[in-house]
Design a protein around this nucleic acid. Structure first.
Length: 197
DNA sequence: ACAGCGATTGACT
DNA sequence: GTCAATCGCTGTA
């Protein structure tokens, strides 16, 4: 696998969830499907923790759905919601500590034609500017739930060759009714692929 | 067994 | 701006 040494290692993920969330911005999310490499730059994320975070799936303890949030950092946690959409998270923290980062938006870098086909639209700015949109664009379903992101194979995240300067904005998380006071949504300032709300 | 609902989206007024 | 779609997960019985 080319560029495998730039794949983020386990030690990146097994840290504090808020730190991992902020540092995921401007990294490249890579989805390999056959010979195709669908790539997007992460521009918007949200952190979810455990018993201190009423908005988190992990707030009330382990269930069959959220068990990956309690496992070791660096795995994909994919869930299905509103009867329509999949959301992609990466797990964080060490084994036994709940945490995950929701990938809310990416800026398409490579494989845009496939993303347009998967989304059924040609409008570039509608391809990946939302958690349910980007999973459809890069073909993430529960098939990918539990994947190890440190392998550099089907799904992974890598450092960019030259990371441009950017400003990080902290804001309220979207679509939740509790825990809104925590500013655990982070996005790249002025990036046009950040979801609206 | 089953009612309630959601870390969203797209269509419509 | 408002609201319906749609179904798997969760809590309760």
């Amino acid at each position: 696998m080319a560029c495998s040494k730039s794949v983020l290692p386990r030690s990146f993920y097994t840290r504090d969830t808020l730190t991992v969330a902020r540092e995921l911005l401007a990294k490249h999310l890579v989805r390999c499907v056959g010979d195709a490499e669908l790539v997007g730059m992460i521009v918007e994320v949200e952190a979810y923790r455990g018993s201190d975070d009423p908005a988190s799936h992990a707030y009330k303890g382990v269930t069959p759905r959220n068990r990956l949030m309690f496992g070791e950092g660096g795995f994909a946690y994919v869930y299905f919601t509103y009867g329509k959409h999949h959301c992609l998270n990466v797990t964080t923290e060490k084994q036994g500590v709940a945490g995950a980062v929701l990938i809310r938006a990416i800026e398409p870098i490579n494989g845009m034609e496939t993303m347009q086909k998967n989304r059924g639209t040609k409008r570039v700015h509608d391809l990946t500017n939302g958690p349910g949109k980007l999973t459809e664009a890069i073909d993430i379903t529960k098939q990918q739930n539990g994947l190890d992101l440190t392998k550099g194979e089907e799904l992974f995240i890598r450092k960019t060759q030259v990371e441009k300067d950017f400003e990080t904005v902290s804001a309220q998380r979207a679509g939740i009714r509790v825990g809104v006071e925590k500013l655990w949504r982070f996005y790249v300032k002025n990036n046009s692929f950040v979801s609206r709300r």
